[in-house]
Simulated assay, not measured.
Amino acid sequence: MSETTNPGLEGVIVAETELSDVDGEAGELIIGGYPLEELAANASYEESVFLLFKGRLPTADELETFRTDLAARRRITEEVRQVLRRAAADGAPAMDALRMGVAAASLEDEGGERENADVDTTAETGSGPRADAIRLVAVVPTVVATYWRYRRGEEPLEPRSDLNHAANYLYLLTGEEPTPADVRGLETYLNTVIEHGVNASTFTARTVVSTDSDLISAITAAVGALKGPLHGGAPGPVLEMLREVHEEGDPEGYVREKLEGGERLMGFGHRVYRVRDPRAAVLSDAAERLYAQSADADFFETVQAFESTAVDALAEHKPDRRLETNVEFYTAALLDGVGVPQELFTPTFAVSRVGGWSAHCLEQLEDNRLVRPVSRYVGETGRTWTPVDERGV
């Protein structure tokens, strides 16, 4: 057995996948065989999920059936609402509320929603891993929006089957039917971050399901991993930074002050990418289109100016680090532009990534092997037992 230790499993291949290919050196991301920029800019979120679940894009009839299946599973029970109501009343963070709601997602709404599942996705009973995958993708937006409305002292809304996935989520948050521009902006975001290799939360989900546990347990664990600020929590602070820079009107001065003070600039640098994050490029284009129709266009001009200033300054101050723009930088601007509250940035990440998590779980189960790494012991040896009354300090 090799004695090499790889902290954080750095560089260790733990799975073969057909879901995505991440090239950090070239700055390229392929999802289901499609370049990210093509898929994100053109697909609906339902098409992206179908692609990950089935390995191909749907026909028009298949897409309509899949949309219907998702819409039929969006509702949550009163018992789940009670949990979210209590979480909101206690001021629980949104990711904690999401974890609670996902854990209870197997409590489906009355009316036998499982029986409405796409018969090609599950056994004849309409249950099983693929049915759970569809349920999870469908219900996460409802859980997030229900918690948020309770948090604001408002009653939650019923999901609308006539709206697509992205539009329904915005409707559940605001109570208003969103504009096509907002829907397209959010949909581009959901497509962009739906899948990104075996990251921490995805690996967590695959590990759980490798034990022959269920998808709901696996996705609950993935939500717990995403909650950690080292994984999914940066877009909120990025927005705060961008708003501060916009109010001060001096991007160059802000960057200089932060770098000279040894502080970190949020939204730059990535564990994998050594060039500009390809997701940042896609979201930048989407945000530019969105803000071109917005009264807040001057804010986006500040965002673009700040990126240019920050990248040049980072290259000068830290030439060995290659700190380029990452996905979180334009996530903050785009989600704010479509009306997603800052407190829901990370849960909205989960609204998208649940599609990738679920697809990885299904892929793991196709040729499953229990995930069981080993550790190298570095503790004491040669100790002998001493009765408690004979032990010194």
Rank of each mutant, 00 (worst) to 15 (best):
G24W: 00
I30C: 09
A41E: 13
L51W: 01
L52G: 06
F53A: 02
K54L: 09
K54H: 11
G55T: 11
R56L: 04
T59I: 00
A60V: 11
T65Q: 09
R67L: 03
T68W: 05
T77M: 02
E79Y: 03
E79P: 00
Q82I: 12
G91V: 12
G101Q: 02
V102G: 09
A104Q: 04
G112N: 08
E113R: 09
N116G: 10
D118I: 04
V119S: 06
V119A: 09
A133P: 02
A133V: 10
A133R: 00
V137L: 00
W148I: 04
L163P: 09
A166T: 01
N168Q: 05
Y171F: 15
L190N: 06
T204I: 02
A205S: 14
V208Q: 07
T220E: 08
G224D: 11
L226M: 15
M241E: 13
L242D: 07
H246N: 14
E248V: 08
Y254H: 15
K258F: 04
G262W: 10
V272E: 10
R274I: 05
A281L: 14
L290I: 03
D296T: 09
T302E: 03
T309E: 15
A313I: 02
K318F: 14
N326M: 10
D336R: 04
V340H: 05
E343Y: 04
T348M: 12
F349K: 09
E366K: 09
D367F: 03
V371N: 00
S375E: 14
W385H: 12
